[in-house]
């Protein structure tokens, strides 16, 4: 394998790795949107919070990773439950934009609280993953990225299966299709809302731990969520498959653009793709088209 090709392959793999992280974060968006029709921008900050909760548990209290990780994920879920019950449910029936702005405000509150608690300086998470380099033939692959890919490979199919076969998943799909009808069929719609927020936020917190392990944590790390938002818009807001494929594509493109064009092209390429995608397929590659009626 020539050096150039080798380099290209390594960059691509790293891109797919961060794409896998994007996919997991995008899942949090999709899950919450599917059930409640809310684009929850606070997913970005829950992700940040997940990283910090892990940091607090592992570095602050010295707990081992296998306890700290579930704790952080559960913490994310609890925050999700509180937020849903406290401020999202009273907004039921308000315009999508108002609810979106509520989540933007929430994000700001969470960032401020994190800054108050842990300060504004970036920090590194304690090592909990193996550092042994992985070689596929000649191609070097960072072990952390490999783990991110492995997690995505487990989590995404798990979500697909849950949606399809689990009772709660079916209830969620029913709620997504028609809230009133689902409610009159005896589905506990408010329960579904809570569930979606809990699982979504827990997922985001988990993604935050992985992201923090790779790049360190800071109160501003929620910016990652913006890229994940692009992923869900490109993939389709209500599509799990769209989140997976969109995440990988955006991750790959960002890595290639960042390497071959320069770091400053990363964001602009992502958002360029977004605008093109919106113009060609407004509801995403795999999303459901909304039909307008008089």
């Amino acid at each position: 394998m020539s050096d150039e090709l080798l380099f290209f392959t390594e960059v691509s793999l790293a891109g797919l790795g961060s794409g896998a992280l994007l996919s997991i974060t995008a899942l949090a968006f999709v899950l919450i949107y599917k059930a409640t029709r809310v684009i929850n921008l606070a997913v970005s900050e829950i992700l940040m919070l997940g990283g910090y909760l892990f940091f607090a548990a592992a570095a602050g209290f010295g707990l081992p990773a296998w306890i700290a990780i579930p704790l952080a994920i559960i913490g994310g879920g609890i925050v999700g439950a509180i937020v849903e019950r406290g401020v999202i449910r009273p907004m039921l029936g308000e315009s999508a934009i108002s609810v979106f702005m509520v989540t933007v405000g929430l994000g700001s509150v969470l960032v401020g609280l994190a800054e108050l608690t842990w300060g504004t300086d970036p920090r590194t998470l304690p090592e909990f993953m193996s550092n042994t380099p992985i070689f596929l033939g000649d191609v070097y692959l960072s072990p952390k990225i490999a783990i991110a890919m492995a997690v995505a490979a487990v989590v995404v199919p798990l979500f697909l299966l849950l949606f399809r076969f689990w009772r709660g998943g079916v209830a969620l799909r029913a709620t997504a299709t028609d809230q009133a009808a689902a409610y009159s069929c005896g589905i506990n719609v408010p329960g579904v809302f809570s569930l979606a927020w809990i699982i979504g936020c827990a997922t985001a917190a988990g993604a935050g731990i992985l992201l923090g392990a790779i790049g360190g944590i800071s109160p501003a790390m929620g910016v990652f969520g913006l890229s994940a938002l692009v992923v869900v818009i490109v993939g389709g807001l209500d599509s799990v498959a769209g989140a997976l494929i969109g995440g990988l594509v955006i991750g790959l493109v960002e890595a290639l653009a960042g390497t071959y064009l320069g770091g400053e092209f990363k964001m602009v390429t992502t958002f360029g793709i977004l605008i093109v995608a919106l113009m060609i397929r407004p509801y995403g590659l795999f999303g459901t088209t909304e039909i307008e009626r008089l």
Partner: peptide, 18 residues
């Protein structure tokens, strides 16, 4: 100061919308 501003800013948005 800065974190408190961030929190209040967010809380105002949420509070008014709700």
């Amino acid at each position: 100061l800065s974190p408190v501003r961030t929190v209040v800013f967010g809380a105002l948005i949420v509070g008014f919308l709700v």
